[in-house]
Computed example of a mutant assay.
Amino acid sequence: MNKTIEVPPTLDEIEELRSAAYNATLIQRIDIHEDLALFRVKPDSEVVPFQAGQYLTLGLGYWEPRVEPSQEELLAPKQFRKVVKRAYSISCPMLDTYEQLAPCSQLEYYEFYVTLVRRADHPPALTPRLFQMREGDRIFASPRIVGTYVLKEVAPDDDVIFFATGTGEAPHNAMSAELLSRGHRGRIVSATCVRLRRDLGYIAAQTRLSAKYANYQYLHFTTREAENMNPGLPGYVGKQHLQQVVESGIFEAAAGLKLDPQRTHIFLCGNPAMIGYQPPGAPALSSPGMLQVLQQRGFREHGSDGPGQIRFEKYW
């Protein structure tokens, strides 16, 4: 009868574990700031074809070091030789080094937009290890790419609006680049809400993309900058959550676009409070989410086809 090994692996054993568990390489890491980065991962085999908006699973062994400072983690013996895995939507750079459109279908790697979680209700397992990685390090990347948060039923002349919080922007970047590569004729607006402007990891690429394509627009809003928090400032605007900028008319004015369910597809990704999804038996929402705000305007939660549909991706 086999007994549980109750000691951490040795350095030699770690090399064996890495060789057996990992099937991809971190080829580039772009740090936005100390808690936000882009990770470009190249699989040992060819990149698997997938639809923009889908996700795959990344994994690292519990034997890998964690970035500091981060919440203390006490591993059970059964975890010493296991791999922790989490699902991440696939993003894309949107434009290449020659300022040409770079949809996911043209890339030889997967791009991920990740926030470092240092503390949580349970000690975070993957991101403290991921942020310890350097270019050339090995990682697990699932060969299976899945997800239903995709550009289904979007016609070339339809308007498409993406609403995201933080790294929820990732699948929208992939979908925006895909639409533009198809020669999409309708308007495309990608709106993102973050705490601070420094959390806009794609702002440079988004600005260039907006200048390059007349039917594409990127809007960003913040909740923790001085103008969001200090009523005494001349430029005070308050916290600009996406629900509020839509309800107030700020979004439509900034986009120059009417939220018309007859011609518009809506995509939501990010914070549950922004989305406003209520699972069966869940307590009532303390304030409306985007689902509630948009349904009042005639949009429908996904399950139907065509314009007027709200699709949403959940990160919880």
Rank of each mutant, 00 (worst) to 15 (best):
Y22R: 05
A174W: 13
S181K: 03
A282Y: 03
A102F: 09
Q262Y: 07
F251Y: 15
I139M: 08
I32P: 00
G147M: 10
Q243T: 04
M94Q: 12
A87V: 04
R197I: 07
C104R: 04
S210V: 10
Y236I: 07
G298M: 09
T222R: 00
Y109A: 05
Q206W: 12
C193M: 05
R29G: 03
P272E: 06
W63E: 07
A37E: 07
G59F: 06
L242Y: 04
I250L: 14
Y62L: 00
R86P: 06
V84M: 03
K82G: 09
P261I: 10
P234V: 01
N2P: 13
E46Q: 09
A52R: 08
P279R: 01
S304V: 15
Q132N: 14
D199S: 11
V146S: 12
R129I: 15
H265T: 09
R86S: 13
M175G: 04
A253F: 06
V189S: 02
S105T: 14
L130E: 04
C92V: 00
V47T: 03
N2Q: 08
Y113C: 14
G276Y: 00
K258A: 15
T165V: 01
A164H: 00
F299Q: 02
T264P: 08
A191Y: 02
V7K: 00
E111M: 12
E153T: 15
R29H: 04
G238P: 09
M274W: 06
L116D: 08
A76K: 09
E135W: 05
T25V: 09
L17N: 02
D260Y: 14
E68Y: 02
P128Y: 11
V245A: 02
A170T: 02
W63T: 04
G298L: 11
E169F: 05
Y113S: 10
E64C: 14
P261Q: 01
R182Q: 15
T192G: 02
L17S: 00
